[in-house]
Amino acid sequence: MTGRGTQSWPRTVLWTAAPAVLGLLLWAAVAAVVRPRAPLPGPVETAGRLVELLSGQPLLDHTIFTHAVASLARWIVGFLIGATVGMAVATLIGWSRVAERLLMPMVYVAQLIPGLAWIPIAILLFGIGNTATVFMIVLTALSPVAVNMVAGLKSASEDHLRVARMAGARARDTFRHVLLPGSIPHLLSGLRVGLGNSWRVVVAAEMVVGTGTGLGYSIIQSRWTLDYSSAFVCIILICVVGLLIEYLGFAKLEEATIRRWGMVQAS
């Protein structure tokens, strides 16, 4: 082993911090250049506002925590519904040829439509508000989950299917004991993609659908209140949640599953 494995911890810290420092410097520079013409907040002002908001100062009638929790709740509810429906659709497609013919094209096409393109339909169906936002999240999470799980169900090896056949398994048991567990690594990557995509859609949908609370709603409202540093605080919180999804949520689980499922050689 060379490189990362043998790096001493000060170097590791340095290389982790360096891009963040560079980013902050660039931000400060841009803010300084733009400042004479537009009130773009720099890192220092944003940090100050972050502290104020975290200490409970209201932003658009609510604390920053209420906004964050509102966004997270919409996201999780929408994602859970979308993922559940996505898995049900994939199961149906994996189970029946007819369902595959009928539903698979719809799922593929749905995957090509950006979540936000549903805004007019969402508003038409549910009016302005929370339900419309959740509806868009459901649609965003559904497709990647369904598409990946179907791919997983189809990835069963010929020999594994033959094991079921030689045991005399009924179709139901083959599905339950061979196809379904075999699809889990694919399903997990579908869930991860769905989770990330739907988070982005939550924020964007809140901007358009006028939910009254939420990080996306707060960002767009800062146009009227000219409270740009609060907008930046919201953006930072959105990044933090995104990073948490990426590194804490699924990455570890996916890695462990892929190793156990033998999709990579365990060394």
């Binding site: 090896s157 020999d159 594994h160 033959r162 094991v163 030689m166 004991h177 061979v178 567990p181 075999g182 889990i184 156990r260 499922w261 033998g262």
Partner: peptide
Amino acid sequence: VVFQDAALFPW
């Protein structure tokens, strides 16, 4: 059947 590469279920 005992398959050439065992064909066990890895999960």
